[in-house]
């Protein structure tokens, strides 16, 4: 069964800690609940988004630097 991971904040979603870095997670990775899966930039400040749930085979539904709304699904994992 797949579980949705939603962004608590609106803003711009980043999949990498910095432009030069590798993504926090790639499609297909397993995640722990405490794993950071991305950053949301809201009003020029950055906030970490944690998976909040353990699972495998994460699938992102937004790209790096996409604009997102609060509550939008950013990824799904198989719990």
């Amino acid at each position: 069964m797949s579980t949705e991971i939603k962004s608590p904040l609106p803003g711009v979603f980043y999949r990498k800690p910095s432009p030069e870095s590798a993504p926090f997670k790639n499609d297909g990775d397993s995640v722990a609940a405490d794993d950071v899966i991305g950053l949301v930039e809201v009003m020029k400040s950055f906030h970490e988004v944690k998976a909040g749930v353990a699972g495998r085979n994460i699938r992102f539904s937004v790209d790096d630097a996409d604009a997102i709304m609060a509550g939008q699904v950013i990824a799904e994992v198989e719990a």
């Binding site: 904040l9 711009v12 009003m43």
Partner: peptide, 11 residues
């Protein structure tokens, strides 16, 4: 009134 402050710019 009614304006939606966007999240993309400074606060």
């Amino acid at each position: 009134e009614g304006y939606a402050v966007p999240p993309f710019y400074d606060s």
